[in-house]
Design a protein around this nucleic acid. Structure first.
Lengths: 312, 312
DNA sequence: TATATTTATAACTTAAATCTATAATAATGA
DNA sequence: TCATTATTATAGATTTAAGTTATAAATATA
């Protein structure tokens, strides 16, 4: 049994296809066939059921694959330990970011980060919270940025910053004339929310829950982006909540519609997530420091006591 | 980097000597030299300082060796998973047992166990609790039987049985005429205890602590075995406590000196210990079942409420 | 049934691991 | 200090393993 054989097995388990897995491993298909056969012979078990199309992992195979994942992860970590010791920050780093954080955070820290750590090859993907959790678990992401707490098994969270919510109140709304807004003013019935899967919505719902103690399942509308949300709001569909950083990009003429909350302001907790195995920890540390530094300048509310609307 | 290379590195780290490590690995010394060089070249680090005699592991090398231990453990577990699935109970199994459990427990379950699981090659060693903890941690023992709770990091405990203590009161002792004895009768000042490192002593001290709330450091005597303990006791050195199973072997004429405790009787907790990685779990399960079954017949006090003298 | 897709096998090549023999190096003792 | 001893490194040959190309066999698809 070799680490290489285990990596081949993982690739096949993932692609359910020897040919495709071989490509991903940069070897030919016969190499995979023979190596997997050797592994199966040595353990005297069948890992893959080639009878089914697409190929299926056997019951026992699944356990072997799970353990193979552990072994390969632990093995990869050797490289990580060496890098950390040498102070080397580099290599490929796959980062997932949720849609409502992507457009505001990325432009702020990206330039700074790649300048500071030129040897890191960043691969950034916009993903929903659900996708992020799955891909960190299966090792396809090295880390991700999402609203927390999620408390998902095997995934660690480290808070990057707290981003206050700002209310966007359209011209015809009942709260139009208030200068500041209080959490108790909110009503789930006249609020627009982002579509399912966007954690921002979870944040808003939890926020309302906090004060209403229970919620109604029939929301009035769901939208896919902050821009759409504002437009729908202007069309008389209700008020909405925007994460603070988004409000900095708004056209000036919309500013009168923004109502800041009375302190303590509700906020969402934004964290960097990573697998409990702490692979590539030195890059995660670097990213954490980089983002925290940038955010300190952008969000001035940092010293204000903030309630987390996402707490369970 | 291969699993084989990591195993070689572990062997060298352990023996501090390429030649001896090579023997243990069943390869020649040049094989180890070249494989370790390849590993060091690939990681671009030095793991072993050959300048020192005996060889020393470098600071970074220590971290690599630690991680190598993880990887090799996880890799060994693949075999374990397959065995478990196939219901195969076999292979080498190294078991440590503390001195005060060894002579009573081993004759009871050994014959039964090797008959039931003929493919397990048991290697049993008498060791102190301290040695046991060290050797489970470094992977030299698969499991051990000792008095608990120990709550040592990385080591799991599973209770096998509770063994009541029986007081041995010599003829000239102040408690000689009592039919049964109560824990409150005990006095650390006139008690004989086993030498340091035998957990039984810890048990007795904790027992006295429980009722005296503090203890005196000047014990009157320390001895290495149950037999010596009884002889010393007869010589007027004080009373002593015997684990119940030991009293079954005593010569009949000594029976009048045994005083059972009033219920709830103090007892020691005897557990099977194993590494948290749960390697060879199916053998550990088999051994647990085997011992529990045997003990149910031997200790009739099982249904009696028992206080654990070892609780912290 | 022909065609395409995918895995297995065969024969060969390349690369890796291991061996024997021996050199180099460092520690030990007269 | 200079053999003696113990120990690791290196060279060259051998065995074993991994990978390649070419092709057969098996399975789905049209």
């Amino acid at each position: 049994m070799t680490i290489t054989q285990l990596k081949y097995a993982l690739a096949i388990a993932e692609h359910k296809n020897f040919t495709k897995a071989a490509e991903k491993c940069f070897v030919t298909q016969p190499t995979l066939s023979t190596q997997i056969q050797k592994l199966e012979d040595e353990l005297d078990i069948i890992i893959f059921d080639r009878g089914k199309k697409p190929i299926e992992v056997t019951d026992l195979g699944r356990k072997i694959i799970f353990q193979a994942r552990n072994i390969v992860n632990e093995a990869d970590r050797i490289r990580d330990i060496v890098d950390q010791e040498k102070g080397f920050i580099g290599g490929e780093f796959r980062l997932g970011i949720i849609p409502t954080v992507m457009p505001t955070l990325l432009p702020m820290f990206l330039k700074n980060f790649i300048k500071k750590y030129p040897k890191v090859k960043l691969k950034i993907e916009e993903l929903t919270t659900e996708e992020i959790l799955a891909r960190i678990s299966d090792g396809h992401l090295d880390a991700a940025i999402a609203a927390t707490p999620l408390e998902s098994e095997n995934i660690k969270e480290r808070v990057l910053y707290y981003e206050p919510f700002v209310a966007y109140v359209p011209n015809n709304h009942r709260l139009k004339d208030k200068k500041t807004i209080d959490v108790s003013d909110l009503d789930i019935e006249d609020m627009l929310l982002l579509e399912d899967g966007h954690c921002f919505r979870d944040g808003v719902i939890n926020l309302c829950k906090t004060f209403k103690d229970q919620m109604d399942d029939s929301f009035q509308l769901e939208s896919g982006s902050i821009e759409t949300l504002i437009k729908l709001s202007n069309e008389g569909m209700g008020m909405t909540l925007l994460p603070y950083l988004h409000t900095l990009d708004l056209k000036e003429k919309l500013n009168p519609n923004l109502k800041h909350f009375t302190q303590p302001s509700p906020a969402r907790e934004v964290s960097i997530l990573y697998h409990k195995s702490e692979l590539k920890m030195q890059i995660i540390d670097a990213m954490h420091n980089s983002i925290s530094g940038i955010i300190r300048g952008a969000i001035k509310f940092q010293n204000v006591e903030i309630i987390s609307p996402l707490a369970k």
